[in-house]
Write a protein that binds this DNA or RNA. Sequence first.
DNA 1: GTAGTACCTCAACCTGACTTCAGGTCAAGA
DNA 2: TCTTGACCTGAAGTCAGGTTGAGGTACTAC
Lengths: 145, 145
Amino acid sequence: MYTIGQVSQQFNISVSTLRYYDKEGLLPQLKRVSGIRYFSEKDLEALRVIECLKRSGLEIKTICQFMKWCELGNETLPKRKELFEKQKRVVEEEMKQLQKVYEMISYKCWYYGESVKLGSEEYVTPKIPEGLPIHIKKSYDAAHQ
Amino acid sequence: MYTIGQVSQQFNISVSTLRYYDKEGLLPQLKRVSGIRYFSEKDLEALRVIECLKRSGLEIKTICQFMKWCELGNETLPKRKELFEKQKRVVEEEMKQLQKVYEMISYKCWYYGESVKLGSEEYVTPKIPEGLPIHIKKSYDAAHQ
DNA sequence: GTAGTACCTCAACCTGACTTCAGGTCAAGA
DNA sequence: TCTTGACCTGAAGTCAGGTTGAGGTACTAC
């Protein structure tokens, strides 16, 4: 069993955020002894899932809904399965988008690298897009489709 | 030259958002004819960069700062280069984190798939973590390090 | 016994990124 | 002529996801 301060350190989540999560119903299993919260292994795993679902783009409300399903037992298993399958697709899409962002940034890194080297943009700009080095053109195209 | 409505459609950004960006100084090159905004190719490229930097985690304010640097010419090239290099590292880290999220979700998909198949979680839970199939254990471990 | 630290609550506040709203201009078509 | 649609402004409103602050308890260390 861990106190809120220990969990805060371990997960790098502020104490007030943990209390806020509790208030919003994200930690329905959380035990208290004379008002003080004690986190079990189950609560820590719940926190890992919360972090994961949050990063995947779910709102707190929806995560709260999921936690309630967990409380309701086997009946809600199909709903929970579907939620994760949907979020899997969401994250796959997000990964694609992030890849595109990465291509754009890589291209811009090259662009500004050249510009700084030559002291000016004006020698680099005319190369766009046909005069770009082949590996840079790849990034440029990925970012501009 | 494009009107705000055309750009809104093409980029799937609402008209009010485009006006908001303009107001915040994100489109310093934007031309107007008797009050009406006209977007050139340069403005569209700026919008692509804005989308990219936003997704990479930068705030509007910071993007605005960058746009001002662009206006100031070659003197600011090193700053702009550094900004993109920093964001490249940020996005690399974000990709790692997203991969971890993906591993957790994949594991949970398997977990709920099994649970639904067997009608209950209670036959699946005891397998964690040593009894997990090898490819699932990989995801589990990635999500729990 | 008092200072310090970690915990608690509840309500109010904050921030970023938009969105909405009221009221107005302007050009084209019926 | 008049109505429709696309544009404009400035101020106010919204929403999620916290954070802050005032005021209080409870235990330990000196």
